[in-house]
Structure formats: C-alpha cells, structure tokens
Amino acid sequence: MKKLFLNSALGLALLAATAGAARADGVGALQQFVAEVKSGRASFTQTVSSPDGRRKKSSSGSFEFQRPNQFRFSYEKPAPQLIIGDGKKVWVYDPELAQATVRAMDQALGATPVALLAGGDLQREFELKNLPSEQGLDWVQASPRRSDSGFQGLKLGFKGQTLAAMEFTDAFGQRSLMQFSEVQVNTRLPAERFRFDPPAGTDVVQSR
C-alpha cells in the first residue's frame, strides 16, 4: 500500500467536488477545481487491479487536504495506514508494523496527481483532454508531461459539478479505481490534522 501513495491513493488530491464549476466539460471542471477549491474532505473506496485484471484488492478510508501542501489519507479497511503531508515532509505510517517512512515533500510529489493539491502548475505538469462521457460521468484525461512521473495516465470522472471517480494506471499497468462520497469542499480543518508525531516505539525510516 505504501507505493500506492504516490501512484494512486494520492490521486485523491483531486477528489473534492468542483464547487460551483460553471462549465460542464471535464477539463473546465478540473481547472476550476484547482483554482477555487482550497480545502476539503471525503470518504473513498479504492479497487486496485493487476494488469491482467484477474487480481483485485479493495480498500476504503477518508481523505482531507488543505492548500498549500497539506493532506491526510487515512486507510481504514482492510488494514489501517496513515499518510500525511505536513507542508515540508510526507509521512507514511503503518501502525501494525510500528513503522513510519518520511520523505521530503518536493522529492515525493513531482509530476504526480497530488501535485495539483499541493499547488502544482496544472498546464506545465499535465496535458489535459476531454474524453467521451461514460456511465453518466464526464471524463477528462490528465497525462503527465514528464517521463519520470511513475504513472501512465489519470482519468477523472465528474458528475455534474462533483468529481465522482478517478481511474489511474501506474507505470507497471496496475489500475486503480477510486470512487468518492460524502464530499465537502472549502471546509475549515484543524491544523493538527496535518501533523504527525511518531508514537513511542515507532521505527522511523528516512526515504530518498
């Protein structure tokens, strides 16, 4: 699950409703989200499929973010895991292993979906393209401009003015589908939600 942090879970950085987006197309909704949504929270379900589609893993939890550079992913099922960006560092904490991995934020983000949450340059980092509507959703494709982004592509599905789904494929062909519910945008979040103090006895690993 830790490697899914930059490759799929952190795609949740784009999850919040687009709060008042006037344009119906996916590209316009995404651009307005980046410009106007400063904070948010939501519940999510995530299904990860192997490249051949035969093996699947499901998880669920909650997500919170606040610009700039702060986010919190709390996986609840099937196993607890916490991912926190505090503005300078990114922490990945596994309570069952009593282990926390920490990495500098500028090294962790790059041209990943979470870069949009952290205030990245949308046009510089991604090429955007409207896709045909499917299953009642308007889709936009966000392709990374950098070859070292670690993923092949990202599709975001909007229902009206709300981002309802995200489909992500990593560099190895592993596919993640995320669906969002109970979305709140531009809500006030306590500062302590984006701080992490390793519990006593935690093995802290510095990642590069």
Rank of each mutant, 00 (worst) to 15 (best):
L4S: 13
L6I: 08
A16L: 09
G20V: 11
A29P: 00
L30R: 01
Q31T: 01
Q32F: 14
V34R: 05
E36S: 12
E36D: 14
V37E: 01
S39C: 08
S43C: 07
T47R: 13
S50Q: 07
G53T: 10
S60V: 07
S62E: 15
E64M: 15
Q66H: 04
R67F: 03
S74F: 12
G85D: 03
D86K: 05
Y93H: 12
A98W: 10
Q99A: 09
V102L: 02
A104R: 14
Q107D: 15
Q107M: 11
G110Q: 05
T112M: 09
P113G: 05
L117C: 13
G120P: 02
D121M: 02
R124V: 08
F126K: 00
E127T: 04
E134P: 01
G136V: 07
A142V: 03
R145C: 03
S149G: 07
G150W: 03
G153S: 07
G153A: 06
K155M: 10
L156N: 01
F158W: 08
F158A: 03
K159W: 05
K159I: 00
K159Q: 14
Q161L: 07
E167F: 08
D170P: 02
S176R: 05
S176M: 06
M178F: 12
V183W: 04
V185Y: 04
N186L: 09
T187Y: 08
F196C: 03
D197L: 11
T202D: 06
Q206W: 06
Q206G: 00
S207T: 03
S207I: 05
